[in-house]
Design a protein around this nucleic acid. Structure first.
Lengths: 211, 211, 211, 211
DNA sequence: CATGAATGAGCCTTCATTCAT
DNA sequence: TATGAATGAAGGCTCATTCAT
């Protein structure tokens, strides 16, 4: 039986994770020492190791948390924008997510984790988990849109998802680099136009020669 | 007065840069020590400092070089695929570039530099320089396509470019994470279809409600 | 006023000491943290400090206990092997003691304590106490054997004890290093032969020129 | 081609090893930090790592050196004390070796290494190497003495060596614990008397019942 | 009595960089 | 020009011990 309440423990963990996010956003993962984190969290050096057994564990916890938040983010999807195909509504959400946090903290941390994923299997797996819902459920939706005659049946559904995901990822990167120079709302409009036939107004589509 | 020829100097610099690329691709920028680089380059510890003032300088040189290569990459653009609008031909090239290098070395290094750009002004500026041609010349092309009636005139040309760039960036990231699971050719087809009206085959476009 | 019985207290102390012995045997004194001990003893971190003021105190208690055991070990000495001089019977016991414990746990811990004794006055004193009986009572026995004409009267009784003790100590060390390669029974035979004239069978002893 | 002479390098290594010996003798292996060593050697913290890649490597080097010294110690053996069997002359040397160093530094370090050998395979192997000459060549000498009728043929030659080695080891330990209370010369006399029939002067040996 | 959260000093090691030769 | 010895700050982590609950 612990001496302090379960909430206190969880609060401490959260305190450390929050501090880590701040530090990572400011200085990157490798530019952040555990000392930086404990200072930001206003904790003793040893205290951090009560809650996480290594720096990598903090990263993992932080990753897991952002994964949970991500799932929540896409939960209310079915209700919004009923005029759009379901698979398309994620694009809107996915791009606008980058505007959520002040100073784009999460966006910056995300990019550091992207790089880290190339070196660290655990981070890579978290990264994959983030896209798992897309990969698993959305190609089938595309296929239905193709059968319904709305989407070109010659296109590979997996590739469609790949491109959609690319847009969200690339938008995040560009916003991280230059938070103030891009009009994300306008970009969302363009993206939606692309996927719903509202972009190209020319007589005949250039798509024919894509084969 | 240097005893060795200018070429020798340049060769040594290149040797170091190449070694750095190898190391960075393997272990990331922060996971690579100068010792790793000099070992890979088969040079003495001090030698590196004859050619580069610091580790940061190596990173910068490497970034600059990739910038030059990038420019070359897009040079022959005018000749290829005359059926496509000029601004669209870059997409094809930009996405397929990721397939260029064995083991996706450049792709991995690129992603490490993306993260580094968030911390290091010089790297960020190199990063911006990479996209400068897009930003400067391509919106005007879009505008022309809009005036020609090919592209929806309600869309923001800068935002169009933003989305195009996003696709290329996001494709790079996804390929770096999972080099073997994606069909980049199929993705290029999808991308081209999106931009040339070959994606949406539905009766009326959903683009109207994007406003 | 203690809520729990005296036995409970003592049992807890013993529990900790036993755990410490296990840990020390496994990882050495310095390789064992208090956490290792409390884990092995299945106790809370703070509990240990109720029974022992410090890590050093545990070591001391453990040393004291082995001292008591040692005394018990030599108690029945008088009855066994009446054919041997009393001072010699200790050798047999002393060497065979190393065979007592499975995995030679006590032997290993003893050696760690030997080293510790060089740094820690308290441990050194325990160590000395272990040999005190030898030093105090046995030289007199030797002297009697010398007067009885059994042992060379030119030899220093203290030195005889020193050599006897050396044999026991050295045997312990060698068995700790290589538990399986030595035949301790054969070694005891050799030792007894040495002390009772059964070793050298040559015409005239080389001992004359030892002076 | 190194910048400094080979001797300089070797001198630095020796400087570190010597410092380590001093520190180990003073505070034990675990009580000595690399900082202690570098301070004693008057070197920078990083310098130590030019010459040894870890603390364990320093221990190994120090062990190797003492092994070499040990071999030298027993080299001139054949010339000394021609009145004694060759295998016996080592005992004299082996015991007196403990008197060599001021403050018994080597003796103390040896004991710390004895303990370390129980935890560290590399140290254990050095330890074994130290006794290898004994194990390999001396049993045969004993056997010859047995055939010559000088030594009781019923005794196991390996066990004889085991006991001889025990005496040396145990003498070292006792001298390390109490450098000033023992008369090592007298002990050597006892030891020689034991092995050459000069100890037991009784009418009939007690050795008969050793079987 | 008991718990385990908290502390902070200290440890081994790495690394970018300098500089005498 | 080239070498590699030397520097010392910093990093991740462990651990004996204290103390509020």
């Amino acid at each position: 039986m612990p001496k302090v309440s379960e909430e206190h423990l969880e609060a401490r963990r959260q305190q450390i994770i929050d501090a880590a996010v701040q530090c990572f956003a400011r200085s990157g993962i490798h530019g952040t020492s555990l000392d930086d984190i404990r200072l930001e969290a206003d904790l003793s050096r040893g205290a951090v190791y009560h809650y996480f057994k290594s720096k990598e564990d903090i990263i993992e916890a932080l990753r897991e948390q952002s994964l949970e938040e991500d799932e929540q983010l896409f939960e209310g999807l079915k209700e919004n924008r009923p005029d759009l195909p379901l698979w398309l509504r994620t694009l809107d959400k996915g791009m606008k997510r980058n505007l959520r946090t002040p100073g784009n903290i999460d966006t910056r941390v995300a990019m550091f984790l992207w790089a880290e994923a190339l070196l660290n299997e655990r981070v890579l797996n978290s990264q994959r988990a983030l896209f798992k819902p897309w990969r698993e459920t959305m190609p089938e939706m595309i296929r239905q849109s193709q059968q319904a005659g709305d989407v070109n049946p010659d296109l590979d559904p997996e590739a469609v998802i790949f491109v959609m995901a690319s847009i969200m990822i690339g938008a995040t990167a560009q916003l991280a680099w230059d938070p103030d120079t891009h009009d994300i709302e306008a970009a969302v409009e363009v993206a939606e136009a692309l996927f719903t036939g509202g972009f190209w107004t020319g007589g005949d589509s250039g798509g024919e020669d894509a084969e």
